[in-house]
Design a protein around this nucleic acid. Structure first.
Length: 138
DNA sequence: GCCAACGTTGGC
DNA sequence: GCCAACGTTGGC
């Protein structure tokens, strides 16, 4: 099963908002980057990912799960961009800060570090385990 | 608030 | 199809 990381500015859509959306989840729309879009197309229902707060917070705060596969975004007239539907699974006991990620040799190669602007990223199994460990599990 | 990195746009 | 210019993102 593949793992992913989703970035969101907490002022726009925070972890608390995601939790409040409940088990039905929310359509992760608004992505207008082809690479991020392709990552979401590759996702399968049940794939888990990290929820990352950018700008204000700069930390991995929780785990989300894909509940519906990629579907076109009705707001994109060209029909090229779309999104998956995500629900909150559980918060990390301790948020894993970007500064900690950068100094952990197991995480230094993360896309989050190498290409910080990509809004939907793949996460390797080793990185997944390392962050869960730092976060005290979920 | 600044600026680097990256993606996209548009002229040629 | 190349590449310069521009806009946006996001860390600091």
């Amino acid at each position: 099963m593949a793992h992913w990381l989703y970035k969101s500015e907490p002022g726009v859509w925070s972890w608390d908002d995601q939790v409040a959306a409940g088990p039905a989840g929310t359509f992760w729309d608004g992505v207008r980057n082809h690479l991020a879009n392709n990552h979401m197309k590759a996702m399968q229902v049940g794939d888990r990912g990290f929820f990352y707060h950018s700008n204000d917070g700069k930390a991995v705060v929780g785990v989300v799960e894909v509940v519906k596969p990629w579907a076109p975004d009705p707001k994109d007239e060209a029909g090229k961009f779309g999104a998956v539907t995500l629900k909150a699974v559980a918060p990390l006991k301790v948020p894993v800060e970007l500064s900690a990620i950068k100094t952990d040799p197991r995480l230094a190669e993360m896309v989050l570090v190498k290409n910080s602007r990509l809004s939907v990223q793949p996460v390797t199994d080793a990185e997944w385990d390392a962050i869960l460990e730092r976060g005290g599990g979920s």
